[in-house]
Structure formats: C-alpha cells, structure tokens
C-alpha cells in the first residue's frame, strides 16, 4: 500500500486544480461568446427571437446545473453519440454561463438611459452607430464588475463536473479521500484551493463595483 504524506495530497490537489482552471476558462470564454450572441438576440426587434432567448435564459436559470450536466452527458449517450465527461462538462457549463451572462449584459445595456437612444437618433445616428458610439461603451463599463463577479460562480460550477467523473479539484479530493481516509484535511484543502481561486476575483469585482459607484455611474 502506498503511503500518502500531506505533501503528496497537496501536490495531487494542485495538479487537479489545473483542470478546474482550464474547464473554468473554457466555460467562461465559450459562455461569453454564446452569451454575447444571445444578448443581441434578446435586444433585437424580432419578437420571436426575444421570446426564444428569454425562454432559454429562464430554462437554464430555473433548473439545476447538475441536471443540465446529466441531460447532456446521458442524453448524448441515449441518442447514440456518447461523449466524454470533458466535452459534456464544457458544453453544459458553456450553456449555463451564457444564460447568466446574457441576463447580466441585457441589464447593463438597459441601464443606459433610454433618453440617450432618442438623443442619438435625433442627432442622425443609425442603430449601429448609436450602439457603437453611445450605448456599448457605457454598458461595457457597467458590465465589467458583475461579469467578474459571475466568473466566481463559473469556477464553483465546475465542481459539479466531478459527479460525471471529470477529474478536477473536487473529484481529486474524493479520490484521495478514498485512498487515504483523511477527509477533514483533504476537503479543507480542497475548499482552501477553491477559495484561493475565487476570493481574489470576488475582491476584484467588489473593487470595480466601488470604482463605478465612486464615479457616480451607479
């Protein structure tokens, strides 16, 4: 039987943290891309497109992330195309992230005063010019703090990928626990590592929020 020292445990957990980070990055970049698309769909003048996007957002915000993960993982298999835990987790987290980011960004775009739209149109700017020169720069500034804040939710969301067998930080924790029977140390370390990833982001989001507030934008 192999003996695990404290440092072996820590080293293995740190190695697994890489996959938590990679999965978070995939989910965040993928989610931002899809989310951006959805945000513009939601703001379009086509009523059906608007309805479809809000249905999408409601569906993903109203169901557990774990179920989304299961449906994609087992659903793909049931349709005769089994996919890896990697791919299932990436897809589920991307869709989940996109729904939340779409909701956040729509709020930011709508937070820019309506009068500015009218003013720009009166000045002879068309829809795209108004978006590009007036609305987007302001909305972008508003959107950064909540987006950074949401990235914490994405990192925490990746922990669920452990349940379909993807070996990231949480899964590594349960596996090490099965080998060493030191649950207290291991799960405290796992929590500490997540905290080390998330807390700086939370603080940064709060700092950005305060900066906006001080600038009188909120």
């Amino acid at each position: 039987m192999i003996e695990f020292t404290f440092w072996d445990i820590l080293r293995n957990l740190l190695l697994a943290t890489r996959w938590t980070i990679v999965l978070s990055l995939i989910a965040f970049v993928g989610g931002a891309t899809v989310g951006l698309l959805l945000t513009f769909m939601r703001l379009s003048s086509n009523r059906w497109l608007q309805r479809l996007t809000s249905l999408y957002v409601d569906l993903f915000q109203g169901t557990p992330l774990l179920m989304q993960l299961f449906l994609i993982f087992f659903g793909a298999a049931a349709m005769g195309h089994p996919i890896s835990a990697w791919l299932a987790a990436s897809i589920a987290l991307t869709l989940f992230t996109s729904a939340f980011l779409c909701d956040i960004w729509r709020g930011c775009l709508e937070a820019v005063a309506k009068g500015q739209w009218h003013a720009s149109r009166v000045l002879g700017m068309n829809y795209f010019q108004t978006m590009r020169h007036v609305i987007l720069p302001q909305a972008l500034r508003l959107s950064i703090p909540p987006t950074v804040g949401f990235s914490v939710q994405v990192i925490k969301g990746t922990a669920l990928a452990s349940i379909i067998g993807f070996v990231e930080l949480t899964k590594a924790g349960t596996m090490l626990n099965n080998a060493t029977f030191e649950p207290f140390t291991i799960f405290a370390l796992v929590a500490l590592l997540y905290f080390a990833l998330c807390y700086p982001l939370s603080c940064y989001a709060r700092y950005l929020e305060k900066k906006l507030y001080d600038a009188g934008l909120r």
Binding site: V152, K156, G157, A159, L160, S162, I163, T170, G173, T174, N177, E182, P183, F184, T185, I186, F187, A188, V190, A191, Y194, F195, C198, Y199, S202
Partner: peptide, 19 residues
C-alpha cells in the same frame, strides 16, 4: 461564498466525522 456548495457538503458530511 467563495467555495462550491458540494465541497461544503462533503466537508460537513465526510470531514467533520474526522473530528
């Protein structure tokens, strides 16, 4: 707020009995 719920759950269910 900065750790996943599942880890909190595991810590309470698996970790605390260690104490």
């Amino acid at each position: 707020r900065n750790t996943p719920f599942i880890v909190q759950l595991f810590f309470i269910f698996f970790g605390l009995p260690g104490l």
